[in-house]
Write a protein that binds this DNA or RNA. Structure first.
Lengths: 327, 327
DNA sequence: CACATTTACGAAATCGATTTCGCAAGCCTA
DNA sequence: TAGGCTTGCGAAATCGATTTCGTAAATGTG
């Protein structure tokens, strides 16, 4: 049985209140008493019970990381995200609690809020916009500070951390233009997230700045997210009457897949076709030729999210927090 | 302010005890009363306070994942490990709490135990053997169920989950032998973990089974873990009077590095040199030529660890738990 | 009908901290 | 020296659940 505050107070012949005040450095305690208490606490290895403390203080110093998506799909991204978040959280004397099986289940999210086992929530991979907004309202109703990651949520009163995809896609496109490309393919994602919208905006901006006309034929929408995704996309581009000399893809795995397809068909990369990805995952370093890619500063985003939440919690109420530039 | 059990009892005109007993399905409550309580709880959206519950029950249904190593070094592995662990834990109505900054700090680990904010601990990447044993003793003294991952701990009373590296290395070596290799290089790791020892055992076993004499010259110890690690290793092997035709490396990143070095020097892989890794990380699928690799079933290990701990906690006292075959 | 047994519920203790508020002793001031 | 202030401490309330145990009513038994 661990040492309790009562054991301490008995041993010292002072009241529990005094012990508590001495250890927490608040209230009226003489410096002598404080010293005696501190000393005894160290000797007995006293550590306050987290449960008792949480109950009384009505806070837990824990942040929930709710992964709102089939987790196996995002584990690469997760690997970058989690370490940073956990470390930053711990610097603020918080810890991260993982919730992987709440996806889409409003009831269970509500339960999580009501049980008050976390002080705030980070929602990784929020659902489509309308649901995200609803989710945010729900959390706000429950007085639960929260933040979305890594997708922009275009509402003034909803907090998120996300890369600046407009800028990212613009830079990437500019890079391809600098290399001499004029016909640049762009693959739209089927999902209706801001991410896709922003990238498209950046792509269009870069074209305009370079005086290249925007050709709708070069913008192809991938219709689903299944296995053949990459292949169908690739075919759609190559089947074009005037095929692009470079293509922008949105996830490196897909770009890598397309790269190998292109090589299979005897195209030389990047001489015949330039392929660009977006995630900057590990593999980009090991493929050959190396993939042109914009690196999302994932770990930074995680850190930012973890940082922002304790602040919002302490100051009471989640302040609107936005933005985060891509590298 | 969330609904408390008192609100419920007031509304229904029954005592708190009755409400609690009804909801937890224990003690004497008439089925009518139980129905009324359940109904009201649903209506009001009552969810018991985690803190109050934890305090009274003296358990938290939380498992600590203590990453006992600079976390950025292991994030790839972590990405595979965490999802499985978290999901399994949640099936057992537990959650994982991340602790990334306790590495080696005995005091803080002791504090974690004493605060009782977790019911059990998974230690990822335990330190060298002697420290691991000491750590296990400490945790046992604190009555904290715990398990080590993913390294074998050769003590009967210490629980761990790890791949069967003897078998894994044996299979990999056999594979190379089947391909016709007779001189197979083996790289020993500088660290004194069982992992290295077991792999070496498996390697030696496979050679013996194939009637190939064990040549100590082919076994090279990497001395440190720095940047040039892969390069020095590679040079050591190629500098041998009779160079190996295949080499076993222990981490895929190193193997991949060596692969590119070999290509730089004009060697053809695998015609001139076979290179084998061990981790089975993503990159193995995207390098060219594909790396021969033994896949550690990381996610399974995570699941196993998460599974074993709640059992040990419930049954009181961590039962000795061992083994886990490699694929 | 008298007595033993169930059944259903509630009062109160408990988990282990924090925090408020009151009180006594010591000190100062006029 | 009487009255007001400060200082240091402790009694008790509180956070919100669970659990033990006692008791009244209902039921069963001879």
């Amino acid at each position: 049985m661990p040492v309790t505050i009562e054991d301490l107070s008995n041993k010292l012949g002072v009241s529990r209140s005094t012990v508590s005040k001495a250890l927490n450095d608040r209230g009226d305690v003489s410096s002598q008493t404080k010293a005696r208490v501190t000393q005894a606490a160290r000797e007995l290895g006293y550590q306050p019970s987290a449960a008792a403390r949480n109950l009384r203080r009505q806070r837990t110093d824990k942040i929930g990381l709710v992964v709102n998506y089939p987790i196996f799909r995002v584990s690469d991204f997760l690997a970058e995200l989690i370490p940073g978040m956990a470390m930053v959280a711990e610097e603020a004397t918080c810890n991260l609690i993982l919730y992987t099986s709440l996806a889409g289940n409003t009831q269970r999210i509500k339960s999580l809020c009501r049980s008050r086992e976390v002080d705030g929530i980070i929602i990784a991979w929020p659902p489509r916009l309308s649901e995200t907004v609803a989710l945010s309202r729900l959390l706000a109703d429950e007085d639960m500070p929260h933040i979305f990651l890594p997708r922009r949520v275009p509402h003034d009163d909803i907090s998120y951390v996300a890369a600046d995809h407009v800028q990212g896609a613009r830079l990437l496109t500019q890079h391809l233009i600098t290399l001499g490309h004029r016909r640049i393919g762009f693959e739209r994602l089927p999902e209706v997230f801001e991410t896709d919208h922003d990238r498209h905006t950046g792509y269009a901006q870069a074209l305009q700045e370079a005086g290249i006309p925007y050709d709708p034929q070069l913008v192809i929408s991938a219709d689903t997210n299944d296995e053949d995704y990459g292949e169908r996309s690739f075919c759609a581009f190559t089947a074009l009457p005037e095929a692009p000399t470079a293509i922008l893809f949105f996830t490196d795995p897909v770009a890598i897949k397309v790269l190998s397809l292109a090589k299979e068909r005897g195209m030389r990369v990047p001489q015949d076709l330039s392929i660009a990805g977006y995630d900057g995952i590990l593999s980009s370093g090991v493929t050959e030729p190396a993939l042109t890619t914009v690196r999302q500063s994932t770990s930074e985003m995680g850190e930012l999210a973890a940082e922002s939440l304790p602040g919002a919690i302490t100051e009471g109420g989640a302040a609107a927090l936005h933005g985060k530039g891509a590298a």
